[in-house]
């Protein structure tokens, strides 16, 4: 990024205003999550009696421990650790499934002489037109009919029925110079060798970028897991939020704010950390995949 050099006057009013706006923006983004963090550090009785705290208490360890390792708080049979594992299975399973399926399909469409390539292209790309949400009820019936309700496969596979990844990899493969596959063919590489030796290593950044996008997308799924997993042992953290809110807001006892927010924090943490630490890949993946 090259910037036009600015005047080096020490303090200009407009610069101060610019920074003020950005700082306020950043604080607005942070504030709710900060409050959620402080909430996890107090015990429930204090919170109910004295209202929300802006400072940290000493109950954070207890609350996280209870949320992660004790069953029967919000749900009957599952603790936070199991939900975390389920979330990881969904996030990673979805991301890997998406990458494998869409790379394979894009490879076939771009690198093979295939009579029905255009037809396959349209069959796949029509799926961009209709998000899962608009066909949610029949999808539920189909998956249940196949006996896939309350299975990991039923959780993950139907989410894979969309073309975003394929479109992304197709664009990328098309941008790879034609001569590369030609050089490889002269070097004696067949389709399998070319894919593994050349194309996959070349796509590493793209794969990383799409992995991050898809992991976050999978991890954050809510509606579909809510429908298709009624067995608590398959609950993800995000799916569990519903149970948690219900017990906080619809129960009669003292709301268990501390544990509830400990779980919610765990539900936010992995995707947020990934997005922050792999920021450049993430931004690349997002901006490129939506093109």
């Amino acid at each position: 990024m090259t910037k036009i050099s600015h005047n080096k006057k020490p303090l200009r009013l407009s610069t101060v205003v610019d920074h003020a706006i950005l700082v306020i923006g950043a604080l607005v983004m942070l504030f709710p999550v900060y409050l959620a963090l402080t909430t996890t550090s107090h015990d429930n009785i204090t919170l109910s009696r004295e209202g929300l705290k802006f400072g940290f208490g000493d109950q954070m360890g207890v609350n996280f421990y209870t949320a992660m390792f004790e069953k029967g708080g919000f749900t009957e049979q599952i603790d936070g650790t199991k939900m975390l594992i389920n979330s990881l299975i969904l996030g990673i399973g979805f991301a890997i499934g998406k990458i494998v399926l869409s790379m394979a399909a894009a490879y076939a469409i771009v690198y093979f002489r295939l009579r029905f390539a255009t037809f396959a292209f349209w069959i796949i790309f029509t799926t961009i037109l209709l998000p899962l949400e608009v066909r949610i009820l029949p999808s539920y019936e189909v998956v249940t009919g196949l006996g896939m309700a309350n299975t990991y496969a039923g959780l993950i596979v139907p989410l894979l029925a969309s073309a975003t990844g394929t479109f992304f990899f197709r664009q990328f493969f098309l941008s790879v110079p034609e001569e590369l596959v030609e050089a490889a063919r002269i070097d004696g590489a067949g389709p399998g060798k070319f894919f593994i030796d050349i194309l996959v290593p070349l796509s590493r950044t793209m794969i990383a970028a799409i992995f991050i996008i898809m992991f976050v997308y999978g991890w954050n799924q809510y509606l579909w897991p809510t429908l298709i997993t009624t067995d608590e042992s398959l609950f993800t953290l995000v799916r569990g939020i519903k149970q948690i809110t219900q017990s906080v807001y619809e129960g009669n006892t003292i709301p268990e704010y501390g544990q509830a927010w400990a779980l919610a924090i765990i539900a936010m943490l992995p995707p947020v950390l990934i997005v922050i630490f792999f920021q450049s890949w993430f931004v690349k993946g997002l901006v490129e995949s939506e093109k």
Binding site: P177, E179, E182, A183, I186, G188
Partner: peptide, 15 residues
């Protein structure tokens, strides 16, 4: 690969 040829491309096509 079976023709016993080698080719140099304009954009080199290096891996």
């Amino acid at each position: 690969a079976e023709r016993d040829i080698a080719m140099v491309f304009q954009n080199y096509a290096l891996y």
